[in-house]
Design a protein around this nucleic acid. Structure first.
Lengths: 340, 340
DNA sequence: CTGAAAGCGCTTACAG
DNA sequence: CTGAAAGCGCTTACAG
């Protein structure tokens, strides 16, 4: 028995007694083909188990029906849900998702961009606005269709579908200040290559600074991992003049901080308030439930997909979209302790 | 200014004063090309900003360097981490990941399989062993290289890289029984199209049945969402003869159950023990920390990628891999209440 | 409605 | 080390 390689359009044509052109039409534009021919073709396809060859079609039509997403990590629930929504919209449009992760490394981002583009991606979803100059140049010179998400900025020619991290964090910090907290600690994400983390941190600092009598007790950076948040929190709480509130770069960090606080026998929020960012599933499950900033991930993923599809299709007059976040007050935020 | 379409191999060849064959060699097997020619070619590539056309290359070589993963959802932390690891291994091997989700719908799985295959995936990662007969036939007749993960079965010709859900859940249930619990409730995942959920449920029931004096108080199915777990738990706890322990299909369900128990003023584990499955990040963050079954997701993702790459490469004598799970005892499991 | 034929951009024996 | 040329499997004007 010989190994039968995949059947081609040609095989179908022969089997159905028509030309390859007709088979191709039957596949892509059935109305252009007579009923009789169509029936024979359908039958031949079924019998042969024919599937179109992707490369050949891509070469002939010069389009791949493929789009790429390059994200820091899939491990964060934050991105996972957004990408899930992103993918669903693509699937509805018959577009396939290529995915790659960078681990927050800009060099890696450039590498993955090149890789996905050479794999035929006709457009790209990128996260955040921190990237190599070389990457910007690459994107610009090839006019790579792309949409940037998880952040939003005005007055650029970039297409953003996201939210204003700075504004959201500033607002959240003001809510904390409104509870009377004067000494506040900040556990920021790794800011080096992460503009969202930086914006959140800077906003918190700015808001606190602008409140006459409040002060930033300490700012620590930690990677987005529970244990890192825990460790950072332990460090902050070991200081003499302990803060009464902790503002964290995201929910994962805040969850770690809550563990640390508890292990030091501090009551949340009686002894210390802790707030996160993102409102991932975990936030409402911990106890007390976590005060955080809700990011419209699903909506963002869907909107980004829709826009990217439009960009790829070359629609004119496209603009980005700024989505709203929402401060979610739950049990982990309380008034400043009386004794203070 | 005319819109310059992407430069081709041909353009590079002309610009470098060589034939396309030589440029192609310089790209794929540089040693076969003289230094001088190589230099001119590299220069031309840089100046022109040339990127190989994916479709053409795929057509000519009959390989795509692309692999697909079709998973129920990206929203569950469970899959996200495993897929992340899977993707990293692929990236190291220069292979790109196509991703699609099914929402636990078998019809959708088949659709996505066809879609990714027609997009040129040279192999597939599939989750679990529940699927349409039609899907099995499709996979078999085309000899689609694929690896099945998140479950493991002996004595098939299928390639599994996963763990034994039944054994793991059976073991976990025995640990619960060993604490003296007699009345046990089960909140299973949706079992209809999910063999892992079914195996976990059946194992729990079997283990309880085999314990002389223990009984299954109730079995409820719920989709893997926190609110669904919460609701299911409320329902179970509303019965007169309330269970002293709750075995949940996964951590998400267990987290919901913990919220419900707390809202009914039941202390965990003093009044009721709750255990989950998967050991996602959330499990160690809730309080009390959740007793669960740790699944080696990272390792599983990596192993699945390695195996799939081998399968695609046509390596002989390949076999699946059964990974071990580990029962993680944390605060949410306690002895049966005294008063009982 | 249908077919013959050119062309998409690469790779790869085959010759030299 | 290098080039001419065929071929990969489709699509799509062009003609009929």
């Amino acid at each position: 028995m010989s190994i039968k390689t995949h059947p081609t359009l040609q095989d179908v044509a022969v089997s159905a007694g028509v030309s390859t052109a007709t088979v191709s039409r039957a596949l892509n534009d059935p109305d252009k083909v007579g009923q009789a021919a169509r029936d024979r073709i359908d039958h031949a396809i079924a019998v042969l188990g024919y599937t179109p060859n992707f490369g050949a079609r891509a070469l002939a039509t010069n389009q791949t029906n493929t789009v790429g997403a390059i994200i820091p990590t899939l491990s964060n629930a934050m991105f996972a849900s957004g990408i899930q929504a992103f993918q669903e919209v693509l699937a509805e449009a018959g577009v396939t998702l290529l995915i790659a992760t960078t681990g927050y490394d800009p060099e890696n981002e450039l590498r993955q961009i090149k890789s996905l583009m050479s794999q035929g991606a006709s457009g790209l979803l990128l996260i955040g606005n921190d990237r190599l100059d070389e990457t910007r140049k690459y994107l610009a010179t090839r006019r790579t269709p792309h949409v940037i998400s998880w952040c939003f900025h005005d007055g650029t020619d970039q297409m953003f579908v996201g939210f204003d991290n700075y504004a959201a964090a500033y607002d959240a910090t003001q809510r904390v200040l409104a509870k009377g907290h004067k000494r506040i600690g900040i556990i920021a994400g790794d800011c080096a290559t992460n503009d969202r983390a930086r914006a959140r941190r800077d906003a918190a600092i700015a808001a606190i600074d602008s409140a006459a009598d409040a002060q930033v007790v300490q700012v620590i950076q930690a990677p987005y991992r529970i244990d890192a948040g825990r460790q950072a929190c332990e460090e902050i709480l070991s200081f003499a003049n302990r803060p009464t509130a902790l503002i964290c770069g995201n929910d994962v960090l805040a969850a770690g901080a809550m563990i640390a606080a508890r292990s030091l026998n501090l009551k949340i929020p009686d002894d210390i308030s802790i707030i996160g960012f993102d409102d991932i599933g975990l936030a409402s499950v911990v106890s007390p439930p976590m005060t955080t900033v809700q990011v419209p991930q699903i909506e963002m993923g869907r909107a980004a997909a829709t826009l990217l599809l439009d960009v790829v299709a070359g629609k004119p007059d496209l603009t980005g979209e700024r989505l709203d976040t929402q401060f979610i007050e739950r049990g982990s935020l309380g008034p400043v302790p009386e004794k203070d």
